[in-house]
Design a protein around this nucleic acid. Sequence first.
DNA 1: ACTTTAGCACCTAGGTGGCAAAGT
DNA 2: ACTTTGCCACCTAGGTGCTAAAGT
Lengths: 229, 229
Amino acid sequence: MIITKAGRRMFPAMRVKISGLDPHQQYYIAMDIVPVDNKRYRYVYHSSKWMVAGNADSPVPPRVYIHPDSPASGETWMRQVISFDKLKLTNNELDDQGHIILHSMHKYQPRVHVIRKDCGDDLSPIKPIPSGEGVKAFSFPETVFTTVTAYQNQQITRLKIDRNPFAKGFRDSGRNRMGLEALVESYAFWRPSLRTLTFEDIPGIPKQGDFKTLKNLHSPLKLSNCWST
Amino acid sequence: MIITKAGRRMFPAMRVKISGLDPHQQYYIAMDIVPVDNKRYRYVYHSSKWMVAGNADSPVPPRVYIHPDSPASGETWMRQVISFDKLKLTNNELDDQGHIILHSMHKYQPRVHVIRKDCGDDLSPIKPIPSGEGVKAFSFPETVFTTVTAYQNQQITRLKIDRNPFAKGFRDSGRNRMGLEALVESYAFWRPSLRTLTFEDIPGIPKQGDFKTLKNLHSPLKLSNCWST
DNA sequence: ACTTTAGCACCTAGGTGGCAAAGT
DNA sequence: ACTTTGCCACCTAGGTGCTAAAGT
């Protein structure tokens, strides 16, 4: 994921569906993001792999994203897909916007927390999530990601551009078109169709680096991750 | 105020500051809009006045705008200016977006409600606001307005365009400029400066019809209206 | 004759990756 | 040598009054 000083959304956003709550009980739902290991990484271009590049940087202030619909009844939470699309990541350790602070070039995993109202009334974006009975945490292995300040890998860039509506300007039908490749493609029938293969390869690339898969997970637990499209 | 089928914001938005709450008590804050009288109005162009045009239309479903920061502690409410700028008005009696339903060509007045949490837990956009101890209502005479589907009065239109950032495209420096008046104004020094007086008159026009004044009211009560600019 | 609607051009507000420059 | 920053064009999303046409 890209992180910036001003704060950047995750894409795709974490989306989750809950069942098994008490419909009449009030709950907070929150997300935090924890390190996967104690390492710092670098991307090795020639092998297209993330490699360990030393130990993790010193810890950053822990932050919590409280879902903006909180608090709400179990009934309300269960009726909707719960989206974390407004959550923002930053690399600014002095951030005062309540964004989640992460180190660049580290591996992280988001966690979803379901917190019974009476256990969460002192919940705060800048305090760690309480633990104990009445608080449950969920995470999904396929949502592990690596933080960057600029994409390391053209395949990831391509996925972002193809899927994120806000990046439509960079799609092939956008302005890159009529830049260079567009001309090549427009006149492709004039030449051996070799170059286009480069693009047709992309759907099958091994997933790496940034987010790992886009497929649904139907969890046997109470939460299911709606990571899709 | 303009009302439409899809819903239209009020402009300027109602803004309010509260004091005297219990800092540690939780409150909801809500707004509803009630008829000023039982009449329907029409605008008489030659006299520049709203005149009674019969009795009010039959009542519409009552709606409540619950301030999106609700519920929050007294401390939180008192620390900020509370703005109702996301509230929307509609003339669609079958509205299912939770907007406030009003009749066109009627006079209305917004009311602000401060509701102690334990009295407001069954608050709903489509239910009337509960009454009793723990619920207080405030309203400000200068915020009475008349609903329309199209402005009746060039002075009101002008105020809206001048003050609302979203209407910048209609300002004199916008595209009307270079239309007609702009040319006149550009060459004003070529002619007797008679026409410009028409514009200089505007700041002093008697307020009428739509919203009545823009000045601050510093209420002796616990709420003060921040209607300004 | 008066009121309402639907589509429009023109804005605000803010989310994208690209890219050259700066930082380390 | 590698990483980060700041600014940019290009988008999405949605709030304005205008206008011609439709409704009543």
